[in-house]
Design a protein around this nucleic acid. Structure first.
Lengths: 196, 196
DNA sequence: GTCTATAAGCCGATAGAC
DNA sequence: GTCTATCGGCTTATAGAC
């Protein structure tokens, strides 16, 4: 078993991810993370200087997997560019209907740490969202969409809006509506491209 | 002085509002609320059975004032219907540039209490947002906008999206972009009305 | 690098006096 | 209805052993 066991640090981050996302950052103690990871607090504090560093590591660990999921949802949807963008929202709505869903970890962390603007975890979250926005803008630019940055930014607003609203109402239909709005937005931009 | 002093309960809610919005719900202790209100904890627990009830009272107290602010921003903007809707976003961006701004208290509470779906404060928050959506839909219906409910819902997604995104990036320009998207959305709906 | 043990203080909530 | 005083438990973080 020890042969396949993950490094201690990784196990701690994994435990933090489950607990912080599931219960909230301030609701989860360092004790609880250490217990779930199967290590003592002394070991946890050997790998992380503070709880704040642990929070940052939690979000850092979600950066690439989350981006990969969005890219996959886009790639796996057939049809036009507008269809593929809407596909992201449809897949997100499907995931939001699953029991454990509790919104976007990056946005929820920003909400919890709103009083700590310089917190390392917030910088990681902001960078993550910027990467997503830039990825969308690149796709739009590659397809000759006019004002690709503005279109990408509007998609982001609809996406993060649906995260926030669905977390409050627990009604993923809002994501379908956001997807429909995103579809219209991309279609309109493409028709501007083709007209002139 | 005692002549003009507010009732104790009101002073407690006011202190809770300042602290919960400013620091976050879990970051603020009942002790801190009692101290800011100038009462003892025993008195606070005479008026509220638990911290959860106090959180609910905080959001309940923001319901009408917040709705009134949005209505005022809409009413005070000159121009077409689309202009007036965009005016809401412009005013929100202006408020987001002020130092104490920390996003939407309802959405931040939903993010903090995501693991407690039945919490009374979340029901109050959901009702508040539904009222705002219904208010918009009524205006659109009154102006003969086609599918007023869907248009209202898309405006809500853009508005709450801008709350979430601006809290993370601390860049109110996202609100201006959301306002521009909302403007386009309303204009397009009106042109559908006038064509057919 | 991981363990046991504990510091020093804050948490929500309550008891009893008046 | 408001006060003083305090409960038992939980908080982040650290000390010293190996």
């Amino acid at each position: 078993m020890a042969r396949t066991a993950k490094p201690t640090r990784e196990r701690i981050v994994q435990a933090a991810t489950t607990l912080f996302y599931g219960e909230g950052i301030r609701a989860v103690s360092v004790d609880a993370v250490a217990a779930k990871a199967g290590v003592t607090k002394r070991t946890l504090y050997y790998h992380f200087a503070s709880k704040d560093e642990l929070i940052a590591a939690y979000l850092e660990g979600r950066d690439q997997p989350n981006l990969a999921t969005f890219r996959r949802w886009f790639a796996e949807t057939d049809g036009s560019l507008a269809d593929k963008v809407r596909g992201i929202f449809t897949a997100l709505a499907r995931s939001a209907r699953k029991p454990g869903w509790k919104g976007c970890g990056f946005l929820r962390t920003a909400a919890e740490l709103a009083a700590m603007p310089g917190h390392p975890a917030l910088r990681i979250g902001a960078t993550h969202k910027k990467k997503f926005e830039a990825w969308l803008a690149e796709i739009f630019a590659g397809d000759g969409v006019p004002e690709p940055d503005r279109v990408a930014r509007r998609i982001v607003l609809l996406l993060d809006g649906s995260f926030a609203v669905v977390l409050l109402h627990r009604d993923p239909d809002y994501m379908e509506e956001a997807g429909a709005a995103a579809f219209t937005l991309v279609e309109a931009a493409l028709s501007r491209r083709d007209r002139g």
